[in-house]
Simulated assay, not measured.
Amino acid sequence: MTNILVTGAGGQLGGNLLRRDVPGVSIRGLTSSDLDITDADAVRDAVRPGDVVLNCAAYTAVDAAETDEDAAAAVNATGPRILAEASARVGARLVHVSTDYVFPGDASTPYEVDDATGPRTAYGRTKLAGERAVLAADPTAVVVRTAWVYTGTGSDFVATMLRLQRERDTVSVVDDQVGSPTFAGDLAAGLLELATRPQVRGVLHATNAGRATWFELARAVFAGVGADPERVRPCTTADFPRPAPRPAYSVLSSAAWERAGLTPLRPWADALADALAALPPATTD
């Protein structure tokens, strides 16, 4: 039996993990209210010998981090270090979820796991610090970078497009940022497969296959629920300035994931179609 502890279980990825029923796998989850990962005593009490800890806890307010980097660093760097130290102490194994924001976003081919990092935001800096702290504290740990994660509910990009297609005649979406939309359900399945492979360690990338701009993703969402995709209009990043610069290019290579013998995540368009089909009618109408 593989015993998994999910931290940050109240988020979109953590919540999806808790809904999984996998033979031979026992999953327990702790939300940020249940466990403050910056509290070393509480973490030591929570992590049990032999656990696989899937750390989904993160400070993800990218723009807010620009003016509150200390708060972001506490959750994104200090907390993961504490989890890694607690895991190493009792013989547990940590799988830590990270982000494309650790890269500068100026590439033209998919980022490999050993490509030079160079975050341009406070959020990215704190996530990179967390990666380094985890790998230094626990030699059995795995860092999994992902990008553009959605469920289609709450306030993620897909959910926002579903809401806007009901509320507006047209929507402007940036067409000069490229990434790989990643369905949280597919990422959760990949992490659970990884959890059962104790020999895998180091840094991996996991996203749905393929690439798109936010504009292309928005049009796919509209088309997927029977709305006219022509209602989505392209614009540039400069048209929507944000406190934290968004990566122009954040496609992550899955080569290391596949070399580890893990199942590649399917094309993003296939995942999106299934995600939309599974949503309740009130969400898509």
Rank of each mutant, 00 (worst) to 15 (best):
Q165M: 13
A57M: 09
P267G: 07
S26N: 12
P264Q: 03
T60H: 12
A220K: 03
P80W: 11
G152K: 06
E66D: 07
G124P: 06
R125L: 11
N55V: 02
A40F: 04
V149P: 01
F222Q: 00
V142F: 07
D106T: 15
S26A: 15
M1I: 08
R163L: 08
L217E: 14
A65H: 04
R48N: 05
R211W: 01
A260N: 02
A189Y: 00
R20D: 05
S254A: 15
L279E: 05
V47Q: 11
A159D: 06
A122H: 06
V149M: 05
V144R: 04
S250C: 15
L276I: 08
A73S: 12
R266M: 07
D21K: 12
C56P: 02
A282F: 03
L94I: 08
R231V: 01
V203T: 15
G79C: 09
T182I: 06
R168S: 14
R211K: 12
A227K: 09
Y111P: 04
P119C: 13
P198H: 11
V221R: 00
E258Y: 00
S87R: 01
D34P: 07
T236Q: 10
P243G: 02
T121G: 10
L192K: 04
G50I: 10
T60D: 12
M161G: 05
T196A: 15
G91L: 12
R20V: 02
P23K: 04
A71D: 10
V225H: 00
V113K: 05
A57D: 08
N76S: 05
G130L: 12
I37Y: 04
A92H: 09
A255R: 15
L194R: 07
A72M: 03
A84F: 11
V232R: 01
A256G: 00
Q165C: 12
R259M: 02
V47A: 12
P110M: 13
G11N: 06
L83V: 09
L13T: 08
G226Y: 05
I27T: 12
T7A: 09
V251G: 10
A269Y: 00
A84N: 10
A107K: 06
A256W: 00
V102R: 09
A46H: 04
T236H: 06
A64G: 12
D39G: 05
T38C: 14
L94T: 09
R145T: 08
L204K: 02
G185Q: 09
R20E: 15
A42Q: 07
L262W: 03
